[in-house]
């Protein structure tokens, strides 16, 4: 378990280092996630070539990520409570924010749904 926690931290740290070194606008943990995704894809390709048995995602990594992601929502709470420090901003900009959230969410759902449905239909016909 511990080696896999270390693995996640190392990927996160590498992501942060890469972001600083190349002055990338992408958040460090996202780069870390892409790094781990690439590592898993390479491991999968290598295992297929060697016709190796076993899972591409090591069981210990599976357990650690399942535990972390099972309670992912809890991890947003401390930052979310920080909204108490922005209550006056939130109150003064409630109308633009409310309109923007409702309208852009409806448009995004419609755009994603209609375009994906069209692509799926095309492929079927």
């Amino acid at each position: 378990m511990l080696p896999m926690i270390a693995l996640l931290l190392v990927f996160q740290l590498a992501g942060e280092a890469l972001r600083h070194a190349l002055a990338l606008p992408v958040p460090g943990p996202v780069l870390g996630m892409l790094g781990l995704l690439l590592a898993l894809a390479l491991r999968g390709a290598w295992m297929r070539r060697r016709r190796a048995d076993g899972a591409v995602v090591p069981e210990a990594l599976e357990r650690v990520t399942a535990t972390l992601l099972e309670h992912l929502s809890l991890l947003f709470v401390p930052a979310g409570v920080g909204v108490v420090t922005h209550l006056s901003l939130l109150a003064s900009e409630a109308v633009p924010l409310g309109v923007a959230l409702v309208a852009s969410t409806l448009l995004a759902v419609a755009a994603g749904g209609l375009l994906m449905a069209r692509a799926v239909r095309r492929r079927a016909s």
Binding site: L8, L9, Q12, P29, G32, M33, L34, G35, L36, F76
Partner: peptide, 11 residues
């Protein structure tokens, strides 16, 4: 823990 959890989304 948010950082490592973001990395874990790779799985």
């Amino acid at each position: 823990l948010l950082g490592p959890a973001t990395v874990a989304l790779a799985v």
